[in-house]
Design a protein around this nucleic acid. Structure first.
Lengths: 200, 200
DNA sequence: ATGAAAGTTAAACAAACGTTTGAACTGTCG
DNA sequence: CGACAGTTCAAACGTTTGTTTAACTTTCAT
């Protein structure tokens, strides 16, 4: 069992801690201890604490964008394409819950260095949604919903389970009463597709 | 023009700063400066920094729960009741955007002192949703969606505009291309109601 | 084998952190 | 007036913060 490279261990520990204590709430010494590296290694590899956050956000947005580019374009029906996208995206969210939480909880924070990064990615995402979802939808239903509204709605809906999961685990208790991931995907896919095409 | 009481000024400044820099990212000196109070006043009124956060979360959940208790029970149709709830809730979210952002961004963080508070409120909310939405819905459609799934979905969907607004403002540019609040409410109401009743 | 590059380390830096203290000030009521 | 509770204040407490430095070891192609 080869030990992971230091840089990778720092990255994973950062994702874990940022998701649980927040970016500002995580100290670099705590992070270094968890990653089993010397404190100075963090700045050596990532330049600064913010550089570390940027790299985490990059990883998330890159993959999220790649999923959109893979599933949304093409000649299939809007219904088919959106189903595929939701399926892949939620699966990805599930596999990288902590990264998703870091992305969401850092969304509103207005650090000028970070907001530039996020806006850049959001812009690319909005263009795809606009072209592949909003325009076909307008043709189908006659109703125009801009990507700046539909994109956040879709992402928030898909992320809802993971955003609230730390709370829901604590109170639901009985596991039987909760919904498995396949059902969850089915529910929000139906909700979104039926709900969207019902717009008039 | 009477100057607000010190405690109130602290509370409002905290909401403003926590929404923009996060809870852990906001220093008490910066907060005291913005509220124009002495640093020691914060601990005098709220006991600790966490006590301040608790009070902010209390204000939010209390009102959110009050809206649910007001709009959801009763003999009206599920459709009518849910429409009313979404309308009131989104209006409240809009009027207290910063408080909403603080609540959302602190949702996943696992501070033991805070998570107890949140779980307590979430439990009350889940009970109302379960009784007033999930059960009637199961009777209508035959499909059972637990409150621990439906609650987060609904809240996330209603909050999506405000969660992403700091980003969206930065990139959309043209105000004409964005959706006003009335349209936003209409869109997600239709989405949610049509989408839910389409479950089978 | 040798030298440059990459990785790792302990130690220290100034700055900022949340919190506490005890005195001073305010207004109110007896 | 004097006493009292509610506020406000400057100052300091001990930690912890992110970052930097310079020396050290390891790695690896020449």
């Amino acid at each position: 069992m080869e030990k992971l490279a230091s840089k990778e261990r720092i990255l994973r520990s950062a994702v874990y801690l940022f998701a649980r204590h927040g970016f500002a709430g995580t100290g670099l010494r705590e992070l270094a201890a968890r990653a089993e590296v010397n404190l100075a290694m963090i700045n050596y590899f990532f330049g600064s604490k913010k550089g570390l956050l940027k790299e985490i956000l990059d990883v998330f947005f890159e993959e999220y964008l790649a999923i959109a580019r893979k599933e949304l374009p093409g000649t299939d029906s809007l219904h088919t394409k959106l189903s595929r996208f939701i399926y892949s995206a939620v699966r990805y969210f599930e596999s990288e819950q902590d990264v998703l939480l870091v992305m969401i909880t850092e969304l509103p924070h207005d650090d000028p260095e970070i907001i530039e990064y996020k806006a850049n990615w959001a812009s690319k995402m909005a263009k795809i949604i606009e072209k592949e979802v909003c325009k076909p939808l307008a043709k189908e239903t006659g109703r125009t919903i801009p990507a700046s509204c539909l994109g956040p709605m879709l992402t928030s809906l898909m992320a809802s389970r993971f955003l609230f999961s730390p709370l829901m685990e604590r109170l639901s208790g009985d596991v039987e009463n909760s919904v498995n991931i396949e059902s969850y995907i089915e529910i929000i896919t139906t909700l979104f597709l039926q709900g969207l095409t019902a717009q008039e």
